[in-house]
């Protein structure tokens, strides 16, 4: 029964064209950003600027760890470095918010969910089916975004990665877990709000508001200086650093906790909700 539900949800996703539109936007954005990156990279001496910047900042008295962290967002001329840049820049998260909100909340706002519920499908089956389809759509978005970036950047690359194969696999696994967790949180927001437009707006606003609050706390209270990295929407930006430092379990565990909590909360909410 769940199989049939998933199949019909994929039909709905395909027919709604949301994923296609978001994928096109993702691809175009990736191409545009990679053009800007390559342009900047070429004008700064093919990546030598990173070494120069490191030296300059060290001479200014900054410690090595801070300098590395500050410059970690600048991609090196390696395949993985660019992939990491694209995966952590937050664009996928924004597009996922739109895609998941339109796909899930529209079922509530258009009232089509009652067709499924009144035909003997349980709320748990319906929830899990839509969650799975949403997760697949976000992974598709991430792959398209990555491919769009690699088309341009790939021409100018010097190698695969500075990282070891294990570190790279851990990074990929971490991103995968984080994207699935982000999808689950967006889906839960959609279940609570149930209006497409408001869901999109809240999905885009809430992560930023919480991130700002956490940053303020981290800035003011020394003991909480690392708190913001546990906020799901900030975690992607520290994935590579953690994987390199042997702390890959942090982003993976963070993602799993968010995924489990948001799915459980979403299931409880959906069971109690009345469907109009």
């Amino acid at each position: 029964m769940l199989n049939r539900l998933i199949k019909s949800d994929f039909i709905k996703l395909r027919k709604s064209k949301t994923l296609i539109v978001c994928s096109i936007i993702a691809f175009c954005l990736a191409v545009l950003m990679s053009l800007l990156l390559v342009n900047g990279w070429n004008s700064n001496g093919n990546g030598e600027s990173i070494e120069q910047a490191t030296e300059m900042l060290l001479e200014m008295g900054m410690d090595k760890e801070t300098v590395d962290m500050a410059l970690s967002i600048m991609p090196r001329p390696y395949l993985w470095s660019y992939a990491n840049y694209f995966l952590s820049d937050g664009v996928i998260s924004i597009l996922a918010a739109i895609c998941v909100s339109v796909f899930t909340a529209s079922e509530y706002s258009m009232g089509t969910l009652k067709n499924t519920l009144s035909r003997g499908f349980s709320r748990t089956q319906i929830y899990l089916s839509k969650l799975l389809v949403s997760c697949v759509s976000v992974i598709v978005l991430a792959v398209v975004y990555l491919l769009g970036g690699m088309i341009i950047c790939g021409i100018f690359l010097r190698g695969i990665s500075e990282l070891t194969a294990v570190q790279m696999i851990l990074c990929i696994l971490s991103y995968l877990c984080l994207f699935l967790a982000i999808t689950s949180v967006y889906y839960m927001i959609a279940i609570v709000i149930r209006k497409t437009g408001v869901t999109i707006a809240m999905s885009l606003v809430i992560p930023n508001i919480v991130a700002s609050i956490l940053s303020t706390i981290a800035y003011s209270i020394k003991d909480f200086s690392e708190i913001s990295q546990y906020w799901l929407f900030n975690t992607p930006s520290v994935v590579q650093r953690m994987c390199v430092n042997g702390q890959a379990y942090i982003p993976i565990l963070t993602a799993l906790v968010y995924f489990a909590v948001s799915t459980a909360a979403g299931l409880i909410i959906s069971r109690k909700q009345e469907v109009k």
Binding site: I11, M110, T112
Partner: peptide, 21 residues
């Protein structure tokens, strides 16, 4: 009636048939 407005009548029924097997 709760319909998938971006689909034709046949597509609506087709999707429903898929769901119900």
């Amino acid at each position: 009636p709760a319909l998938y407005t971006n689909m034709t009548a046949r597509e609506n029924l087709n999707m429903f048939c898929t769901m119900l097997g």
